[in-house]
Design a protein around this nucleic acid. Structure first.
Lengths: 341, 341
DNA sequence: GATCGGACGGCACTCGATTGCAGTGACTAT
DNA sequence: ATAGTCACTGCAATCGAGTGCCGTCCGATC
């Protein structure tokens, strides 16, 4: 709340010492270098004047900004706010500030945002926008920048990542439906170029195979993006097949919502005619009509863990890459029911 | 994407000029001062080396960071992402970066976040957390910092603010219910210390009066915060009254959702037994069970307009304060119905 | 009482870009 | 030919904090 810029020289003058000494006393690492009594005097002067150091100047000199860049596709996707809160929680405690940038899924814009963040000297990145083959991410890692991937990861290893166990999630979904007597189960898949789309699809196929259930081409539709409107379009294709599936496993909750719409268009009821399962357990999923059965992913936890991992990576550039897998859990609500014969 | 820091001196050396000349060339305002041919040479050198200026150093010298601080209560409240996207849209175009800070409604934390933003030399603030009597905001304005209030405003004038016409919104809600034959209409109010809580309440009382409808004490319950759980608690009180209200006007959608829960607890149906109206038209309000009738507020627009206003204020410190009122609109869905006699 | 060692803190340069001031050279006017 | 003007551009200080180097002063030691 200071009006006129208060600098180290002011504190130095007030304490009757040299600015360099002030710097040393205020920095915990160099503090031992200065006499306890002078240090106390400096502290007193600083407190009295209400001095607080200028992070900009500090960054210029030390190249450390105590800022972290977070790349997400779109803030209005309800999946991301909890993720971000999870991260902010740990960074706040460590004195870091969070700088969030939206890319809208546009690689050009993504690159531009990254350049902005680099220019602002962020100390590291959390990336929630990674495609399986992601040029920008690969370049950043090659350049030695601290990067942690969340939610989505890239093909191959060597990256730090904190992601849900997507295959497992699909297994949970399929098993639940099979237990309810479903056999014609369709998959409303997310984009194949994202790890979530790919792995949930793979997991779906494997689980179906496990149960001796056949999956022909008309039982899988792939959405171009994780949006309601894409969900509607793909669900229409699924529901046009003969015989019609009795259940749909959607790649995420927004796609599931799209399926709701497609069902309504056709005069079909959920869950009486067709069961639907989502993915993520987004906020208010329990409020939908009908309340959505979905695979819950602990986003706040994933965010927090990613934040910690990044901090470790920043402090130790030689840290070995690791990908952390989080267990999903099935949340049964009212969008799934026993198959009606 | 540069690895080694590339500075103006490097460009200067490559172009065979002095760093100062490079600075003048690259700054559009001072560009006319330099000879066209040397300017072209500098441009070429800069492009060839892939130089981009260091915003940190620039900020240190010019005290302008091209960063704007946004204060919100909580990112996971679905009301805020659209607001933020609206602002980012205009700032991106003007070369500003957005720094979002969550306060969780805690004044202590709010003050601390503001100090962080001030230290980072943000050029201005958008504040969505203002209470009607807000010390922090008042101090900031007194200190001459560019501030624009969104969604919530403070008591008295002299502030820049972009807010919905809350009284009007309440009027819309009451009129809709009256038209459906309701007479015992209750208000599930938001906190009185926020302008939204206060004005929507006032608007409710005025509209009821307008229609010759009485409002006794048991017809208004005030929630301590805009949360579902607070909504449940207050709605219980409302529904315990005798005779029971046939309709509830909630101070926002989250409170309305709380009312849904309270109704379900009592075995009452919405809208057959009690109609409910929300406020905001938050994302997915059309997906709830039942789809929520609500007063829509154009948040993205409000955000965009606030962003523009702040930019004007930053460029012209003498700009005169103004508060912009945005028209709400009633969105009728399925949570309201004609009163059942 | 002279020497040595260590603790302390002052000095001055650095980070990268901006900018007031002054100097250079060309060109014009008288 | 000399002064005066103008257009450029180089120089150096500056923003605020961090830090290597060195001098000073103290006490301890023989």
């Amino acid at each position: 709340m200071q009006q006129k810029p208060l600098t180290m020289r002011d504190v130095a003058k007030a304490a009757g010492v040299h600015p360099g000494t002030v710097s040393r006393t205020l920095n915990p690492l160099t503090r031992p270098l200065v006499n306890e009594r002078t240090a106390a005097a400096v502290d007193r002067a600083a407190r009295r004047l209400g001095y607080s150091p200028n992070p900009i100047a500090r960054t210029l000199k030390t190249r450390k900004s105590f800022t972290i860049g977070v790349l997400i596709p779109d803030l209005t996707n309800p999946l991301f706010p909890p993720l971000i809160r999870g991260m902010e929680g740990v960074w706040d405690g460590a004195g870091y500030t969070t700088l969030v940038a939206s890319t809208d899924g546009d690689p050009h814009r993504e690159r531009q945002r990254v350049e902005m963040l680099v220019a602002r000297q962020v100390d590291g990145f959390v990336i929630a926008t990674a495609a399986r083959h992601d040029e920008v991410v690969t370049e950043m890692m090659a350049a030695g920048r601290p990067v942690v991937l969340v939610n989505r990861t890239i093909q191959g290893s060597g990256a730090f990542a904190v992601v849900p166990d997507d295959r497992k999630g699909s297994t949970l979904a399929v098993e639940h439906l099979v237990a309810l007597g479903h056999r014609r189960i369709a998959h409303l898949a997310g984009p194949r170029r994202l790890s979530t789309g790919q792995l949930r699809w793979r997991g779906f196929l494997e689980a179906m195979d496990e149960h001796g259930l056949e999956v022909n081409a008309s039982m899988v539709a792939t959405a171009e993006a994780y949006t309601e409107s894409e969900g509607v379009a793909s669900a229409r294709r699924l529901l046009g097949a003969e015989p019609r599936p009795t259940a749909i496993v959607a790649g995420n909750d927004l796609l599931a919502l799209g399926a709701y719409t497609a069902l309504a268009e056709l005069g079909l009821r959920c869950p009486e005619d067709v069961s639907v399962i989502g993915f993520n357990d987004m906020p208010f999923a329990d409020r939908f009509a009908p309340p959505l059965t979905t695979v819950r992913i602990p986003h706040a936890l994933i965010g927090a863990r990613a934040a910690e991992l990044l901090l470790e990576r920043i402090e130790d550039p030689a840290a070995t890459p690791q990908t952390l897998l989080f267990e999903p859990a099935l949340v049964v609500r009212a969008s799934t029911a026993a198959v009606s014969t």
